[in-house]
């Protein structure tokens, strides 16, 4: 492992509140360049909040988020997207009344490098030929699997260094789940560091390098993927039914 390098993205002792309610408690997470990291945890444990805190959508009340060794918590989401973080939100959240093309354009909204955008669009088409066929279709009329492709494509159009994915396999048919994880691996092989939230712990850990387990806002476990898969406590809590 590349622990001697500096992490590309780091949460240091991060706490996040919604009003008076504390959701994250002293969360420490490190992502190194090129890794796939999985964040596991039950419902309402704070997984989505962790991602929103990284993207600056919510501001941590304590601790800091660091990107490339520089403190970025407190910056606007806009600034963070420009610096190379983008997200596939929970439930995909496409703009349903816009076309596929417009959705993809939303991903590259903040970019001005026309050539780079065109290049990335080709990259997305290579990854998802279906998206190209349906460019002028309203996103709301796409199938669930197609919506997932466009949501990933939209996030890639920001040309992220770090891609955040919130439950990318939620609601997909089993065959699509497998495809989805393959795509994530391909994206990762192209050099993108991936931080994904998953309920589908077995599948997620099978492609991940390391994982963290969040419980009521606290990291209670962090290990390599193999370590987590073999961990008896994990087996009972998250992997049990799937084995």
């Amino acid at each position: 492992m590349t622990t001697n390098h500096e992490p590309i993205l780091e949460l240091r002792n991060v706490s996040t509140h919604y009003g008076p309610i504390q959701v994250l408690r002293n969360v420490d997470v490190e992502l190194y360049q090129g890794e796939i990291i999985c964040l596991l945890g039950g419902n309402a444990s704070g997984k989505t909040t962790t991602l929103k805190t990284i993207l600056g959508y919510v501001v941590p009340s304590d601790g800091e988020v660091r990107l490339d060794g520089e403190k970025v918590s407190g910056l606007s989401t806009k600034e963070l997207v420009v610096r190379g973080i983008s997200m596939v939100p929970e439930n995909r959240r496409l703009f349903k009344r816009m076309t596929v093309r417009e959705n993809l354009n939303m991903g590259s909204y903040l970019r001005t490098d026309k050539d780079g955008i065109a290049e990335d669009l080709e990259g997305v088409f290579k990854l998802f030929p279906r998206a190209k066929e349906r460019l002028n279709q309203r996103a709301g009329t796409l199938s669930g699997g197609e919506q997932q492709m466009v949501a990933v494509g939209r996030a890639l159009m920001a040309r992220p260094k770090v891609l955040l994915m919130d439950e990318p396999s939620m609601g997909l048919a089993p065959i699509l789940v497998a495809q989805n994880f393959e795509i994530i691996q391909q994206i990762n092989e192209a050099g993108v560091t991936v931080f994904m939230v998953e309920q589908n712990a077995n599948m997620a850990l099978s492609i991940a390098d390391r994982g963290y387990v969040l419980q009521t806002g606290q990291i209670v476990l962090s290990d390599t993927a193999e370590g987590l898969l073999a961990n008896p406590a994990m087996k009972k809590a998250y992997l049990g039914e799937l084995d």
């Binding site: 993207l55 606007s76 939100p89 959240r93 703009f95 417009e102 909204y109």
Partner: peptide
């Protein structure tokens, strides 16, 4: 105009895309 439509449809997601 596109950003206006995005905010009208889903302000949270628009914000997560970096739209002000």
């Amino acid at each position: 105009g596109r950003s206006m439509r995005a905010v009208a449809e889903d302000p949270e997601t628009a914000a997560l895309m970096g739209i002000n």
